[in-house]
Amino acid sequence: MPLDTSTTYPLTRLRLDGRRWNELRLLQAQISTNSASSGSSYLSMGNTAIMCTVHGPAEGRRGEAGNAAGAVVEVDVNIAGFAGVDRKRKAGGNDRQSSQLSNSLRSTFQSHLHTYLYPHSTISIQVSILSADGSLLAAAINACTLALVDAGIPMPGLLCGCSAGMSGSASTPQDSKNDSLDPLLDFSLPEEQELPFLTVGTATPIAGGQDGMVDDVDDMKISVLHMERTAHSSYIETMLAVGIDGCKQIREILEGVIKGSNKIIFPSRDDL
């Protein structure tokens, strides 16, 4: 039996993969990975790897009336048969986990994107989970954001997701005097199976004008909040605070990815 976080963390302040409480896993991403689609991305957070492609906005399928108010977002999540520890024979089926993910993603991006610009059309997002090692929803949000940016679909700001939880079962009220539990950032699969956590997604509107991006804390809003497993309500604030901080770190990385790819598309004078 491997060690578990709730016993060893208080002794060493180290998590089971050697991270501290406030550290993200290694996050790497690329965009425009698939030229056949309108937008695409590949993102890995630790051993979680996700590929995402976006098609559209395109005209809705024939026969469907479409929505006059704006574009309809469709999300299809496919968890590869080889993504988990056990290889599943029947891949791509509509299992509970993938439909839950696609529902969350659809409602998230339906309200996040400026869909009113594209009435009677459909934006379809295809998410393929190649390897699942925790924080699936957060990673999928990030991958979708990148792919949507690549597809050039207008949105008020980058939507970034991150998971956060507690280092113990957290089933009783938080005791402010001798608090033995620490919040943990960016859960991996073994941590998800053991501890309570939530997934939070935040969006910061991009201020227009010459300054470009101004990170104004007051304008930041939480677009997604998804609680997994039960924890006492007094811990929510702590987890949320850590999760939002994680989102900020992720935003910087994603911005780096987007700007980095711009360089290649529009080479600056120095490169020429």
């Binding site: 993969d17 991270r19 073994p190």
Partner: peptide, 16 residues
């Protein structure tokens, strides 16, 4: 009786 292969990440550090 199933055999599973498990891959875990390790983040090596120098502040322990």
């Amino acid at each position: 009786g199933k055999v599973q292969k498990i891959v875990r990440e390790l983040y090596l550090r120098q502040d322990i």
